[in-house]
Write a protein that binds this DNA or RNA. Structure first.
Length: 261
DNA sequence: ATGGTTGGTAGCCAA
């Protein structure tokens, strides 16, 4: 089962790129972030024409997540538990079945950016990460293949940025953000990309500004965290970097893992 | 160099 995550930065602006990539890559499951659309505005017809069903958790103007899949999307949960006051659409969970009939629980998440630091936005980011850790612990206890897939908005280590010094005062690279991600991973999750691509210059995001992609001035912030039951079944991991060079690209590219399930 | 670019929306805000 090929499971991908992609922050598409607006589903309406990216519908051509999305359908082109779906046909090219043929993932079984896709977690989308920043759809920037209400549920009713999601292009279900275009996605269906490409062979995918969709479960959408949208919001007007900002945020918004969705799960696309070739097979039925079951037991959908919208929203991250732990704060009934939180109205931001950043989390969706569902169960998918693989070719061999094994169920995989997939969480698609869009972790808060948190900039600028020193404001309530950064406080919200850390609180959201605490809630994610609590949910992740419950998911591990299921002792089944689970994938946490999304834009985590955290640069784990200096080698995950071409120019780490440029991110020193950014919420994505704060010691508190990095420590919270380390604590989450230390519960027992496997960072699939880092585990299979241990070298430098492995990035998933390049800013639109200042020719960042041309200079390969990227960062690695889109992650796939696998439970032990999922990590044991990895057959391939990839980053579709070439998509960043397409016309009208998102600033993020698809990241995927293939599981034997 | 506090710039630069993009998307959603209709003012600027978020990234």
């Amino acid at each position: 089962m090929k499971i991908a995550t992609w922050n598409i930065n607006g589903v309406k602006a990216r519908i051509d790129a999305l359908t082109t990539w779906l046909k090219e890559a043929g993932p079984d499951v896709v977690c989308l972030q920043e759809i920037k659309s209400v549920d009713e505005g999601f292009p279900l017809d275009a996605v269906a024409a490409a062979g995918y069903q969709a479960a959408v958790h949208g919001q007007k103007g900002f945020n918004g997540v969705a799960i696309l899949a070739k097979r039925p999307i079951e037991d959908v949960q919208r929203g991250l538990p732990g704060d009934p006051e939180d109205a931001q659409a950043r989390y969706i969970e569902a169960t998918l079945s693989g070719d061999h009939g094994r169920a995989v629980r997939v969480a698609g998440l869009y972790l808060p950016n948190g900039n600028p630091i020193g404001t309530e936005k950064f406080t919200y980011k850390l609180a959201w990460m605490e809630r994610l850790s609590r949910r992740a612990k419950d998911l591990l206890a299921l002792e089944m293949p689970v994938v946490l897939a999304g834009d985590f908005n955290v640069i784990p280590e200096p080698k995950d940025a071409r120019n780490p010094a440029n991110w020193a005062s950014d919420a994505l690279f704060q010691p508190g953000s990095r420590a919270a991600l380390r604590a989450l991973v230390a519960q027992g999750w496997t960072d699939a990309v880092r585990a299979t691509m241990p070298g430098a210059d492995v990035y998933t995001f390049w800013d639109y500004q200042a020719g960042a992609f041309q200079k390969n001035d990227g960062i690695r912030i889109d992650h796939l965290l696998l439970s032990p039951e999922a990590a044991d079944r990895i057959t391939a991991v990839g980053i579709d970097r070439h998509v960043r060079g397409w016309e009208k690209p998102s600033d993020h590219v698809p990241v995927w893992v293939d599981l034997e399930v």
